[in-house]
Amino acid sequence: MNTTSSPITVLFAGLPVSSDNFLPGISTVALVQTNARLMIFDTGPYAYRPILQGRLRKLGIDPGKVDTVILSHVHWDTAANADLFPNATVVLHEKELAYADASDSHDDETPAYVGRALRRLKLKPLSGEPELCSGVRVIELPGHTPGSIGLMVGNELLAGDALSCAMNAAAGEVRYLPSKNSSACGSLQKALASASVIYPGHDRPFRVGPPITYLEDYAIRIRFFTDPTGPDEEIRVGSFAAKSFASWPTD
């Protein structure tokens, strides 16, 4: 975790994983806490739901106290849990809401029912780059979707999928999750020029640098079985800070 006094707490660090036969959809979910406000930036895929509830509980966060949910965009892996926060106003770009409503023109990342699901909630569509509270401002980053937005928190940026991972930042172009929309590359450049620390939509936070430096490690564990009478197999994948071999593996 980030040890500075950033108002941002990562609930789920995204990962730019890809697979042959399913979409991992491992997206970033973050909490933004200021003196007056309690906000959630993105809500992940439905597959996060019980784990998200558990992580909030561990942090002592009552979902009913969250006053604002900001949706960077309405893809299946970012907007599926916005309903978990019963008293929150859900902020999204007006172009994104129009996109969510237009279920006929959807791409492969947006279910046709997302607009109807969102319309049950207290929505606040916006345009431009309003300040939500002191030091917290919306930034327009269209391209990945018509109304993609990010959130500037001081000089840190929650970027959503306009800047989905550090590889895209290093390449200066949209390699992971490419978009047909020509404004995607401009939004990537705008994101990089706006902040010193970026929380990508599908990666760990990094310092823009140069050089680009990740702020956190990650680890993910997958359990499955092939023999129903046998034990679980467990795979652990991660990126871990260098440690001395003297104490490993006992630590």
């Binding site: 990962l15 730019p16 994983v17 890809s18 697979s19 042959d20 036969n21 399913f22 991992p24 991972c165 550090a166 590889m167 930042a169 290093a170 992971y176 990666d203 990094f206 680009i212 997958i222 499955f224 092939t226 795979i235 994948v237 990126s239």
Partner: peptide, 21 residues
């Protein structure tokens, strides 16, 4: 059989992982 690719960025290397019977 499923294959997963975990990139170790920003350098672009990735780590392949398969789950298969």
């Amino acid at each position: 059989r499923y294959e997963l690719s975990f990139p170790f960025q920003p350098l672009g290397q990735s780590f392949g992982l398969g789950i298969s019977t």
